[in-house]
Amino acid sequence: MKKITLKDIANHFSVSISTVSKALNDSPEISKSTSEEIKAYAKEKNYTPNFNALSLKNQRTKTIGIIIPNMLNYYFAQVLKGIEKTATKKGYKIITCISNDSLNKEIETIEMLSTGVVDGFILSVAEETETEATFDHFKSCIAKEIPLVMFDRVVEDIDCDKVITNDFMASVNAVNYLKNKGCKKIAFAGANMDLSIGKLRYEGFLAGLKNNNLEKDDDIIITTHEIYYKKHEAVVKPLFDHTFDALIASDESVAIAAMKIANEKGIKIPSELSVLAFSNGILARHSNPRLSTISQHGEIIGERAATLLINKLEKKITNTTVETIETDIVLRDSSK
């Protein structure tokens, strides 16, 4: 069966190809009734756009490529929700890909989608990309005038729009809060120390200790260059060979593992041990006790990232922007 083209649809309605293209892309130049009629016919005939042809004619596909490091993280799910909501409102579609923290996968995805499939990218940099400091694929995008918006994990040396969380101040504020509640020995469990966000959270923790005249105790600080995954309890257990009355964790799964160990040792939460963790996911709401968290507002980050990219695509902004989203502490039962 022959694939239907824009020209076929135009001939059917006795209109120009340009009119059909505008109708399919929800242009305000075409009446709503005409757009709906053309879209219904295109759907009935299983029309699919030729992205390469669109690219050659310098027409936008109104599609955004999203690349996230993994699909298991609740934070990234919230960011995706924010992106999708904003993109849909503005008449854009999204294609979501997972890098699995692989540099090669990230490069392949960008090369594939850069051939006229998407107009621009929103992405959080893969761990391997950051650790190997290999950024030519991002530079290539910019050279082709394909806009990028990075979020969460970003590359300072790449001149593109960025939406970030103030991870440094998030940790400082967490230490301030715990100190104000009477905690004097604050532990820290951090993963992915090769990533900028891991380093910033740890540096913020140290700054928070210094600001509050609290002693740094290496015995109650754990930093690794790995993602914990299923090793949460094994990683955090050595902390409990020492005395501390608060814990800041870079991951809520680590925090929940720590609360489990504390419970087994008869340590009462929060009267004897306060626990705070980054992210604000489903686990935090349903743990026992319910976990206090440092909320990164993933949905807001997604909305801002999508808005930045669409504004750049539609020439509403030309300058490079870095937006910082402040965190806040969501208090539940695991902290004083």
Rank of each mutant, 00 (worst) to 15 (best):
E108C: 08
F135I: 10
A277K: 09
E264Q: 13
N180D: 15
Q59N: 13
A87F: 00
I267E: 05
A10P: 01
S27F: 02
E323F: 04
P289R: 10
I142Q: 11
L123V: 03
T307P: 10
K39W: 03
E233T: 14
P28K: 12
K32N: 13
K39M: 02
K184R: 13
K316Q: 14
T320R: 15
V117D: 02
L273H: 08
L113H: 11
E44Y: 05
T88H: 12
T223L: 12
Y74C: 00
I269F: 05
L239K: 12
L148K: 07
S124C: 02
V236W: 08
V155R: 00
D194F: 14
K181F: 14
R153T: 00
K2P: 07
T321V: 15
E145M: 05
G298W: 08
N280K: 09
A257I: 06
G208Q: 04
G120Y: 10
A133S: 11
L54V: 12
A40V: 00
T224C: 06
K237Y: 09
I68F: 08
S279E: 14
I256H: 05
K237V: 04
N280R: 11
L54G: 13
N70A: 02
V175N: 03
K315E: 14
L200Y: 11
S295V: 06
F121L: 03
K179C: 13
L123D: 00
G65F: 04
L178M: 15
K90W: 04
L214P: 15
H242T: 00
V172M: 04
L123I: 09
G120M: 06
N280E: 05
G266F: 12
I17R: 14
N180E: 15
I269V: 10
Y202G: 08
E156G: 01
I122N: 01
V175T: 07
K144D: 11
S279D: 15
N319H: 12
N70I: 01
I158K: 03
E226T: 15
N104W: 04
T5C: 05
V322C: 12
H242I: 01
P28Y: 10
T243D: 14
I38N: 10
T88G: 08
I220A: 02
T321C: 10
F240R: 09
I329P: 05
E111K: 10
K43V: 01
T293H: 07
I95Y: 01
F205E: 10
I256P: 05
E106P: 10
K162C: 00
I68M: 06
N213H: 15
Q78Y: 08
A87N: 03
K144I: 03
I221K: 04
L206K: 15
L113Y: 11
L313K: 03
N25Y: 05
I256W: 02
V117Y: 10
L331N: 04
P147S: 06
F151K: 04
T96R: 04
E106S: 11
T324S: 09
V15K: 09
K93N: 14
C183A: 14
I282M: 04
A170I: 01
A258C: 00
E303N: 14
P49V: 11
N280Y: 03
I4Q: 08
M193I: 15
D218R: 01
K268A: 14
E264Y: 08
T320G: 09
D167N: 15
F168N: 05
E323C: 06
S14T: 12
V15N: 02
S27Q: 04
K260L: 03
Y41Q: 01
R201W: 04
S253T: 12
A187Q: 01
D161I: 12
I30N: 12
S287I: 00
A191F: 09
H12D: 02
